[in-house]
Design a protein around this nucleic acid. Structure first.
Lengths: 371, 371
DNA sequence: GCCAGTTAAACAACAGCGTTTCCTAAGTGC
DNA sequence: GCACTTAGGAAACGCTGTTGTTTAACTGGC
């Protein structure tokens, strides 16, 4: 009824859900299984409370027993693990020319994968119909008894995450030029899927989520840098996506790295993206990598993050060049020994990074990830 | 006993404290007072729950009744407000050459203020003794019956907030050159103040806290940019300070804005700080302001923040020049109408910004601010 | 002046959370 | 075989916010 912004009061139900999510999150981080005693130690709750919480989760079918660990002089611990087939989520990557739909279970396994072309300049209604059809097809792979928690959609920005509305100014095709502007993607898709919960976010954000560890370090951060037609970043700070007030955070490509550099279409001068794309047009991946390294060093210094992940079509075209180039720039530009070396890696999920992260958009809250 | 990192389980006491903090936070944001009904509406809790919570807070003396609001056709609402004299906190700004100590009450009023010189090159033990003495003197202004919640210390980085340890590599004075390196400021000070809770943070961080609104907008952010002997920033994201893994976030001055620019002492090339300090040495505040504007535009685009605050000795020397210069750069470099204009202001607290924010370091958690 | 209508706030009984206390189960090692 | 150790459940408990009901206080029509 009253949907106020800002902080919210919590009642007993909220308390229960919070602790249950905590337990599920810890079990997700331990695929081989975790013990009740271990959970009590990690959460700070009493063993008795953990017993009740795991009892509820067992009764709901969210977790299952998984053997015992070795004895340490007494009764061995009973191991618990997520019941993978208890629930699933759909992750969607909607690009201008391609659609990827993924069905993943609680443990993140891919149960179904579809990748197919999308007609350029397709009308929004047709595109949503296509997505809905593919989601329905994906749910045929749903295990018996599994709940479908929702669908996450990752697509290019700008967009409004909270409202699930796109802000695409320049549609790709010849049809009505503002078809996609202010298009309520979330609600349109939910309406075609019988009210299934739908979450929409920027592709760079979901890709970052896909790389996120199950149990984030407090204060830790991760940046996913995406180089394709444009240059953007997804920021994961303190375990949660940082979207900013208008879901516009992550404009990595439009940082100025050359005060009086060449003009950019965005109106700025000396944007990293302009220089980087120019290098790409010359086919000079090494120069592009060096430039990205400059931007990454800026970002690492500003946010003191733990890890940098590289992805996107251009990066996947010459992965080692980017890995080496960015790493070298980081080392050269942040020589201070107090700054621990920030590891740079390639996106583990590759072309599926955005879709896998989109599914995590739905799964994350179940495991206590802040939204 | 077990102090694990990461997320923690919550019990009834935690639930109670959470809701109480929420209520206190909402009342802080309404100095004229807030009604029980309004609190119930804002928190989502039932009026009955609010009645119990406010009853407890009234009994503890944390809040008090403050008249009634106008009737809207029924019984008028009873207004509640913070009892300013219920508790206080000390805010300290420890600089190389100056010490500021502030005693503030629950509503943020300054009850005592001390500013005095510090001998350059002072030994850590002597400095801590000086700070402890001034804190004791400040607490003489403590209202009768008021609890002293703790002391927050803002000083230059690098330092480790979690451990309360300084990492100052280049001591100012002639005495033992590594006196201050790895100095456990928090524990040393707490030991001299009978275990009073002490929190240590970077000056830029506490200054940012000092500008923070009592009830942050979800997703909103604020950047405090500090120009003095160096150039740094404090980042307030989603209502909480973003410190990064090693309390090193906010290295605003060492972002590269000139890829092949002049070398910086930090090892990098083309750092914003080098260019900016060079302009300052020429006495060219306008050029320095323009450069800061470039960096601020980068920051705003990367983090999609709501507000920028400028402070520091150099800024206070020519406030309007910086205000205009940074505003102009922001407008020039982010012309996109979807990006709402990001307001730029001068630090309201002026020279007391760091100390006032240091007190908020202690007060914040009481009002539900995430640490 | 009085009474119906409206809104605020307290009282009482309640369900459900984690905690405490106690006890049983299931291993190890002498 | 038995003391010891560790895991985990049962029952009673304290305390949270919730639900249902009652009382307090003000407005406005007649």
């Amino acid at each position: 009824m009253t949907s106020h912004p800002g902080p919210t009061g919590t009642n007993l139900a909220g308390l229960r859900d919070h602790n249950a999510a905590l337990v599920l999150g810890l079990l997700r981080a331990a695929p081989e299984g975790g013990s009740r005693v271990g959970l009590a130690d990690r959460t700070g709750l009493t063993p008795q409370a953990i017993g009740k919480i795991t009892g509820r989760l067992l009764a709901e079918g969210m977790i299952e027993e998984a053997g015992q660990s070795a004895s340490t002089g007494g009764k061995p611990r009973t191991l618990l693990r997520l019941r993978a087939e208890a629930a699933c989520a759909v992750g969607v990557h909607l690009e201008r020319d391609e659609l990827t739909v993924l069905l993943v279970d609680l443990t993140g396994r891919h149960l179904h994968r579809h990748t197919g072309p999308v007609e350029e300049g397709i009308a929004p209604g047709d595109a949503v119909g296509l997505v809905a059809d593919e989601i329905r097809r994906a749910t045929e792979a749903l295990p018996a008894g599994a709940r479908l928690l929702g669908a996450g959609i990752g697509c290019r920005g700008p967009l409004d995450h909270a409202a699930g509305v796109l802000h695409w100014f320049t549609p790709a095709g010849p049809r009505g030029s503002s078809d996609w502007h202010h298009y309520p993607l979330r609600d349109e898709l939910a309406a075609r899927l019988d009210g299934l919960p739908v979450v929409v976010d920027k592709d760079t954000n979901t890709a970052a989520l896909g790389e996120a560890p199950a149990t984030p370090r407090p204060g830790g951060g991760l940046a996913y840098v995406h180089l394709a037609a444009g240059l953007g970043a997804g920021l994961l700070l303190d375990g949660a996506l940082h979207r900013g007030t208008r879901t516009n955070a992550g404009e990595f490509g439009h940082q100025t790295v050359q005060v009086d550099g060449p003009p950019c279409a965005c109106g700025n001068h000396g944007c990293l993206e302009v220089l980087c794309l120019a290098a790409l047009e010359r086919g000079d991946h090494a120069a592009a990598a060096r430039l990205i390294g400059v931007g990454v060093a800026n970002l690492v210094r500003l946010l003191d993050i733990d890890r940098v992940v590289l992805g996107g079509r251009a990066v996947l075209a010459a992965p080692d060049t980017y890995l080496d180039g960015v790493t070298a720039q980081l080392k050269a530009r942040i020589p201070d020994p107090e700054w621990q070396p920030v590891p740079v890696t390639l996106s583990a999920a590759g072309h599926l990074a955005v879709a896998a992260g989109a599914a995590e958009l739905v799964l994350g809250p179940l495991f206590g990830r802040r939204t």
